[in-house]
Design a binder for these strands. Structure first.
Lengths: 211, 211
DNA sequence: GTCTATATCAGGATAGAC
DNA sequence: GTCTATCCTGATATAGAC
């Protein structure tokens, strides 16, 4: 049973995607508080009034962008084979996040803005997804620890939160501004510097042998 | 030759200190963009009009707080004995920054806000100090590398910028919110996780022997 | 559903009395 | 130098024509 999607609807959805794209870029550039609805409207090329037909508030707009990001992250996790050691999954998702950020696609996380944080806490769809991802991350880290990859000196929570935070680390901004390292070099260095502090001796020698 | 400082002047200076204290707290809580002059005036307990007699703009206010922070950081560095291995100095200053942050004393760094960043770039006193500290950090990291403490896999710049960034890492906010770790535990874990990624094998085994 | 106003309000900065 | 009252810009959100 094939369902035809009306052209109008397609057009509408495409526009919404375009809006969220713009929001993503703007959020990563200016952050939530400095991003204005005028910015968004201009970037998409529509009037501000029209923008409000799609999203009833600035909150909703940012939430939509973050929800898309959460879904993308979950999808990326799905692509990883079950057989992959958990620490490699962690490395993969960290690398993926950093790359996304460098391409300008990733919002500065909610952590950046108190106002955004508060409004997100009232958004059921966002909370549900965020919680799901949080559990997923926790499970991944716990398994990595079972597999002996993590140092006992740092608790699980620290690594979980670091996975969220590193993609919006100002260090990356500074390195970008210097223009002395390529995107790829930045990612490699950041991943090494970030994970290096969490690895057990065992995992470290294993990683060294691999390299 | 003893110079008497007029009482009025003492009072004035004390008030300025109180203002900067409040700004520090507010900056660390809400960040630059969300901090309002009303907030500051209320926190200090004076009228907004009076506030402007002390600082002619919001920019200046934030700059004053950051300048005080830079000076405090330089002073802290001065206290360290020359004989101390550079990597230990690095560890010390990182620990110091994190503690300060946990006490609510440290502003979220300029990196947080684009607007603040831009206005700071026009503030000669700030730029001069920031550059001085930047050079100081760079020298410290370069020496640490000479002393064989750093891994060749991560460039100096990354560590330098990390020293700035880690004190405003959202990871710390998350850990604080959970209330599952004491301030001291948070500092220890963050320092280990942060520096762990930069150490050479040599430094790592040395650190392990020390512990 | 898109546009062009416009209502409304918050926040930075200033004026002017004391 | 402190206060109160006010100006003015910029930003969210809405109204109303097409």
């Amino acid at each position: 049973m094939k369902i035809r999607i009306p052209f109008k609807k397609q057009q509408f959805d495409a526009r919404e995607e375009a809006i969220i794209d713009a929001v993503n870029r703007l959020l990563s550039e200016k952050g939530y508080d400095l991003m204005t609805m005028d910015d968004v409207a201009d970037a998409v090329g529509i009037a501000k009034g029209s923008l409000y037909k799609h999203f009833s508030s600035k909150d909703k707009l940012a939430a939509a962008a973050l929800i898309r990001l959460l879904n993308a992250t979950m999808a990326e996790l799905e692509t990883l084979p079950d057989t992959m050691p958990e620490i490699e999954k962690i490395r993969h998702i960290l690398t993926w996040s950093l790359k996304l950020r460098l391409e300008g696609g990733v919002p500065h996380l909610p952590s950046t803005s108190l106002t955004l944080q508060r409004s997100l806490m009232l958004n059921l769809e966002y909370i549900t997804l965020a919680l799901k991802m949080h559990k997923r991350f926790h499970a991944m880290v716990a398994k990595a620890r079972e597999q002996g990859a993590l140092t006992p000196l740092v608790p699980d929570d620290v690594l979980v939160y670091t996975l969220y935070s590193r993609a919006c680390d100002p260090t990356v901004d500074f390195l970008l501004r210097d223009k002395r390292m390529s995107h790829e070099q930045i990612v490699t260095a950041m991943v090494h510097a970030t994970l290096g502090g969490f690895l057990s001796e065992q995992a470290r020698t294993a990683a060294q042998a691999a390299a």
